[in-house]
Write a protein that binds this DNA or RNA. Structure first.
Length: 564
RNA sequence: UGUCCGAUGGUGUAAUUGGUAACACAACUGACUCUGGAUCAGUCGAGUCCAGGUUCGAGCCCUGGUCGGACAACCA
């Protein structure tokens, strides 16, 4: 985890507003100089890149200030939560590189204590059992400018409330017939203070407590108290909970428990994608993507399958910063962080994505040479490998033009290029089919240029990649583009839907020819296919039939010129 | 219409807490290169939402607006 410290330390020299608060608390000796955060997901879906930011923030703060960060599942609604999600969340946090040690908690661990807290409020005359239906409560809540009208049960006696609440717990009443409500302020401009519901009746089995309970606490009654029970010093959440803070503080005050402090920051938004769990779920259910871990999804599982590295996501989380203003991060920043990491780590390989056959006329018929190729020019430690060369090879269709424009450095009739790590070749002939499509190229090679340099010192402008035809491995390439065509797919036109902006070309499959070292690569390993893009090995791969996901393209200043 | 929060280059985030707007991404030039990659050098681009006020001095403080976001689930 020292890696993480170094990453963030060098990437940042000024403090974000949360760090400023923490350092001020530290100066004042608040919480005995302790910093304790938590990451509190609800296990009702998969985590996405926005959660990754929160994870990096909370665990990162703990690391930076020598504190601790808990993993706590906010599992107070048994109708939505499942063990599958708990497992995926733990897996994602671990993959990102963080460790909650033995501090894996669940709000459901606190159900007994929470019940006692509720009893305490009842005894203080600060909570009451209400017999109104959900609809009635809603109708009586008023509007932000019109006060709520009091529930007819608002002034029930303590004994009656205690009895009713006990019977709610005992399962005497059907779902929805009663709630426990806090008695606060019906005229508050903050709707959350107008006698919020604390407990509801749900005869539903919970993924952890089974059928032990038929009443479940609401978010507001569970979250802050859970923070307090864990002695969380800084409870960091997103902006929409800002209006809940007065209630958060009210419970702490009335219950006289450890005063955790809630701090809100702006959630992450990314261009060309959607981030809400609801929309992501919709894409999965409608079959518009292939599950939560589809490489086009902004879920952590999707990014992982796509080939993103934990370090790249941590770097990204650090670079986007933390503030309270709404933001949309350019997805190019995420890709930049990825390339930065992959450039240093990913072994290079040669893969021809759109093959064009080249026959080297003057190369011996049955000769096969093993040539040395550098695995990663950025990392000498990565060493070299052997790549077979023979008379017939594949090159990229884009690397040949019969009538090239100016400043085209690649192969054309009569021009010479270097085959990477191999030889200089010159194009001497073009074969076409009846329709005029180029089917094959004839070239000659310069035997003296073996390895890629000519002893006479002559230069060639272009270097292209290649694969020996008889040694090539057939590889499936899954080429991804942004999932949406619109920078802000949430911003829909009249009568439209965010799904209207799905990019029909977000996935294209290519049958490529790869160098033999790519025969059976390890799933999830990253490679750079030289001059093309970074690719990662998909789990659908079989020995001899590798499948690669395009992680991110290389920057291509030639393509940018729009010459082709 | 009520309360809360926010507003700094195209996008994000800073500005020693009142001292004269910086960094990153993006874009664009050029150098270099056995990846048109990487790297390096450089350029473009905001006078800080608006109007007043305090001050020698305001992106930072005050007042009033404007615009944007959040909140009226027995969801979290």
């Amino acid at each position: 985890m020292t890696d993480y410290l170094e990453e963030s330390a060098e990437a940042r020299r000024s403090l974000n507003f949360i760090e400023q608060i923490i350092e001020e608390d530290l100066r004042n000796g608040k919480n005995d100089g302790r910093v304790h955060t938590r990451f509190p997901p609800e296990p009702n879906g998969y985590l996405h890149i926005g959660h990754a930011k929160s994870i990096c923030l909370n665990f990162g703060l703990a690391i930076r200030y020598n504190g601790k960060c808990n993993l706590r599942f906010d599992d107070t609604n048994p109708t939505k939560e499942e063990q599958e999600y708990v497992d995926s969340i733990k897996d994602n946090v671990r993959w990102l590189g963080f460790d909650w040690e033995d501090r894996e908690f669940y709000a459901s661990d606190y159900f007994d204590t929470l019940y006692e807290f509720a009893v305490k409020l009842i005894m203080k005359g600060k909570a009451y059992v209400c017999d109104l239906s959900a609809e009635e409560i809603s109708n009586m809540r008023g509007t932000p400018s019109v006060p709520a009208s009091p529930s007819p049960y608002r002034n029930r006696g303590v004994e009656e409330n205690l009895d009713l609440f006990r019977r709610m717990k005992a399962g005497e009443f059907p779902d929805g017939t009663r709630t426990l409500r806090a008695k606060i302020d019906l005229a508050s401009p903050n709707m959350h203070m107008r006698d919020p519901v604390l407990y509801r009746i749900m005869h539903t089995a919970h993924h952890r407590t089974g059928d032990r309970w038929c009443i479940y606490p609401m978010y507001d009654f569970a979250h802050g108290q859970s923070d307090s029970l864990e002695c969380i010093t800084h409870s960091i959440c997103t902006l929409e909970f800002e209006v809940h803070r007065p209630l958060y503080d009210w419970f702490i005050r009335e219950l006289e428990i450890f005063p955790s402090r809630q701090i809100e920051f702006a959630r992450l938004n990314l261009s060309y994608t959607v981030m809400s769990k609801r929309k992501l779920l919709e894409l999965v259910n409608a079959g518009l993507v292939n599950g939560w871990d589809d490489p086009r999804m902004p879920t952590i599982s999707g990014l992982r399958r796509r080939g993103y590295t934990p370090a790249s996501i941590r770097l990204f989380a650090d670079k986007v910063g933390v503030a309270k203003r709404d933001n949309v991060i350019d997805i190019a920043l995420l890709e930049h962080c990825l390339r930065e990491d992959l450039n240093k780590k990913a072994p290079r390989r040669m893969v021809v994505t759109k093959p064009l056959k080249v026959i080297i006329d003057n190369y011996p018929e049955d000769l096969v040479e093993e040539l040395d190729a550098i695995n990663n020019p950025e990392d000498p430690e990565a060493g070299t490998r052997k790549v077979p060369f023979s008379k017939e090879i594949w090159i990229e269709q884009d690397d040949f033009m019969e009538a090239p424009p100016k400043k085209y450095f690649r192969l054309a009739p009569g021009t010479e290029v270097r085959l990477r790590y191999a030889y200089f070749i010159t194009c001497v002939g073009v074969e076409k089919d009846d329709a005029g499509n180029i089917t094959c190229l004839h070239c000659t090679y310069d035997p003296a240029s073996r390895g890629g340099n000519s002893p006479d010192g002559r230069k060639v402008q272009g270097t292209i990649h290649w694969v020996s035809a008889s040694h090539a491995v057939a590889a499936e390439l899954r080429v991804y583009e942004h999932l949406f065509t619109r920078e802000d797919p949430d911003n829909v036109d009249e009568g439209g839907d965010f799904k209207d902006y799905l990019n029909p070309d977000s996935l294209k499959v290519l049958q490529a020819r790869a160098e033999p070292s790519l025969d059976s690569p390890e799933v999830l390993s990253n490679f750079q296919f030289e001059r093309i893009a970074y690719f990662s090995v998909d789990q659908d791969s079989k020995p001899g039939q590798p499948v690669f996901n395009r992680t991110v393209t290389l920057k291509d200043s030639w393509a940018k010129q729009g010459v082709r």
